[in-house]
């Protein structure tokens, strides 16, 4: 088997005495979409933030293209991570900048484009997520939630990243807009041939955008398999989670 695009081994992270990740192993094959599911507070966000370098894990291995980003020198680690595009849960658009500058931000930062050409390029990318040029000069606060998600997606794909992360891409959207965003995600990921990881609680969305899925439970990956089998898996943890049963092996901690 060829080397996975992202390979995680024994990843651990604790905040104080609270162990969030307790030895996560995960492989994401080049060009496939991995879905990560798991209850709130089980460390899904910490997992992708660790890969992005926003959280420093306590121990473990995170390889991108076979290189351990945790051991690589800072400059090399930045280069490896520069190929990751991220769609944040609430968009995280820069509210001090107009939409087009948000979209072109990564390209401008990497000096891959001149400022004069940036607006035209941004309009181009906005068209790929179904937004027309009239929104380019608006401020993010003037957009609806669904449109902010689209702009966030446009910002993530503008630099044509080899890897894409999606943090709950459909949360807070109505079912139709959720399906539209999923469609756009699949389109973009396919067109760019990217490898992707998506966190979601939305099983319909998981099956639309995912090739494979992993269940995060008690700080570890307790189950992996094809996303299509999420709803039919005999694994009791996955079964309880995907069907939203109150009774089962998962005991929800109502208080932290």
């Amino acid at each position: 088997m060829s080397q996975p695009k992202i390979r995680i081994r024994g990843l651990k992270k604790a905040f104080g005495s609270k162990v969030v990740l307790d030895g996560v192993d995960l492989d994401v094959t080049q060009g496939t979409a991995m879905i990560v599911i798991g209850g709130s507070g089980t460390g899904k966000s910490v997992l992708i933030k660790s890969i992005l370098g926003l959280v420093t894990p306590d121990s473990g291995v995170i390889e991108i293209d076979g290189e351990d980003v945790l051991k690589a020198p800072p400059k090399r680690a930045r280069e490896l991570r520069a190929q990751i595009g991220m769609l944040f849960q609430n968009g995280a658009l820069f509210d001090s900048l107009p939409v087009w500058e948000n979209v072109a931000f990564g390209l401008l930062a990497q000096r891959r484009i001149r400022r004069a050409a940036a607006r035209a390029k941004a309009v181009d990318v906005l068209a790929q997520v179904g937004l027309d040029a009239t929104v380019a000069d608006l401020s993010p606060a003037e957009l609806s939630g669904g449109m902010q998600k689209r702009v966030g997606l446009a910002r993530a794909i503008a630099s044509e990243p080899a890897i894409m992360f999606f943090d709950e891409p459909t949360t807070g959207l109505d079912p139709i807009m959720g399906a539209v965003i999923d469609g756009l995600i699949v389109d973009c990921v396919k067109r760019l041939g990217s490898t992707s990881i998506a966190i979601t609680h939305d099983m319909a969305s998981a099956q639309r955008i995912g090739d494979n899925a992993a269940m995060l439970y008690q700080g570890r990956v307790s189950w992996t398999g094809p996303a299509a089998e999420l709803m039919t898996s005999p694994d009791p943890v996955v079964d309880q989670f995907t069907h939203g049963r109150a009774e089962g092996p998962i005991k929800m901690a109502l208080r932290k």
Partner: peptide, 10 residues
């Protein structure tokens, strides 16, 4: 998350 977003955009 805008500060995190800056980091992810080089």
């Amino acid at each position: 998350d805008q500060i995190d977003a800056l980091s992810t955009l080089s």
